[in-house]
Nucleic acid binder design. Structure first.
Lengths: 233, 233
DNA sequence: CACTGACAAGAGCATTGCTCTTTTCCGAGC
DNA sequence: GCTCGGAAAAGAGCAATGCTCTTGTCAGTG
């Protein structure tokens, strides 16, 4: 009976992954807003109503794609950082940020899905939270290691005010007990800065304005790295 | 005949502005994706097909809203900078960036429309370009003034590589002939950094992570300002 | 007065997400 | 081996959407 139950479950799981695969394919070419349940069901050769058994609502399908996208980005960042294991923090910072941008350029619609405007009427459920934090977590932990090794050339940083409470929460969430408040907050600035740059590039703000995008990005990364005491790589 | 023609034109212009007003109202509550021609036509008491005479396609309506949004942001930035006229560059920098954030928080859907994920299948036409550059232009020109007055405490900045060509183009576009390449590129980093922060805040990335958002934003602004030689305000 | 051109109205088409009701079918217990 | 239960699929249907086409309407002009 356990076997039979898993048989059903297995078929179901397989179908679920086929659905998300098809949806991801469609997402890659048409974008999230144009993602259509009916199109997915067509590609899978089933009737549209059958799809609602697996994803009761279009938002549920979107949620699945969001989690997968966060994970894909997390994997890319992990791989890039692993590839330069043993290097100094500046090299790792560059590798991590380049991985973010490369992944975004390769998967623009996925990037837009997770870092672009939220779909109206859609509230990201709690399921997405752990995956959402993977990339930044990797960065902050790298930074904490560098700080512990004394590799960060931080000048005199002003002590923060009430935002110290936020810093404390982040310190706990990322499990970086020794990272000082100012550094943690500067890390937030650097991190958001990277995504600001990538979003501008991807969302068309650089059109007819910036051509040497690799170099401009590297420049931004170097400058942002300086905010957390990282030298040029 | 000229009078009659302008009579027609005037009626038309009035209706066009009524349409965009209704659309903006709808945008403010439901977001861009849910903006519906039929809903606009309903609110205006006309039949949906009549609307297509003024905006042939939904994208054309969106374009109008985009331009208006860029202009509203530009106005907000101009007003904020005017309000601190005579102050030092650090104060103006803070005023400008705070204006950006305040406008974004007050008009989240408009912000998402212009700085969020682009609507798929929609390419922003050239009409949007001038309005799109207003805010950043104001910032860069302010920076150029400060640089000319020797108010920027820039350390030794590395000369850029091929991206110098981009810097030259931007220098021409913004009409800041004396702003050096490294400073211009650093300005780009600071500017994108601000929008990265605002986007993260607005698009939900700070949920359950950052509470003291005013202070955290000010901290980011201060740090980003440092990249272009601006002291704390 | 008749006409032309701008406008409005309405019907219609293909599409969407989602909800029903009905049918099919697989697997397990008697 | 057969029968039943529950999971899955199918299909029809509803209320929307953007957009097109055809038909009516009315103001201003020759």
């Amino acid at each position: 009976m356990n076997a039979s139950r898993t048989a059903r479950e297995r078929a179901r799981a397989e179908l679920v992954s086929e659905i998300t695969a098809s949806a991801r394919r469609q997402l890659a070419v048409t974008g999230a807003a144009a993602l259509s349940m009916r199109a997915v069901s067509r590609e899978l050769g089933m009737v549209s109503s059958a799809l609602h058994r697996y994803f009761p609502t279009r938002d549920d399908l979107l949620t699945a794609l969001i989690v997968q996208s966060y994970d894909a980005l997390g994997d890319a960042v992990d791989a890039a950082d692993d590839a330069v294991a043993g290097s100094g923090p500046a090299v790792r910072w560059r590798a991590i940020t380049r991985a973010v941008r490369a992944w975004a350029l390769a998967n623009p619609h996925e990037y837009a899905l997770i870092y672009g405007s939220p779909v109206p009427g859609y509230a990201a459920p709690a399921d997405t939270v752990p995956a959402a934090g993977r990339a930044v977590r990797r960065f902050v932990r790298m930074l904490a290691e560098a700080h512990a090794a004394g590799a960060l050339d931080v000048g005199p940083l002003p002590e923060p005010g009430p935002e110290a409470a936020d810093a404390a929460r982040l310190r706990a969430a990322f499990e970086v007990p020794d990272l000082p408040d100012p550094l943690l907050l500067a890390a937030l600035t650097a991190w958001t800065g990277v995504f600001g740059h990538v979003s501008f590039e991807l969302f068309g703000q650089f059109e007819n304005a910036v051509d040497h995008r690799d170099e401009v990005f590297d420049g931004t990364v170097e400058r942002l790295g300086r905010l957390v005491g990282l030298p040029a790589a």
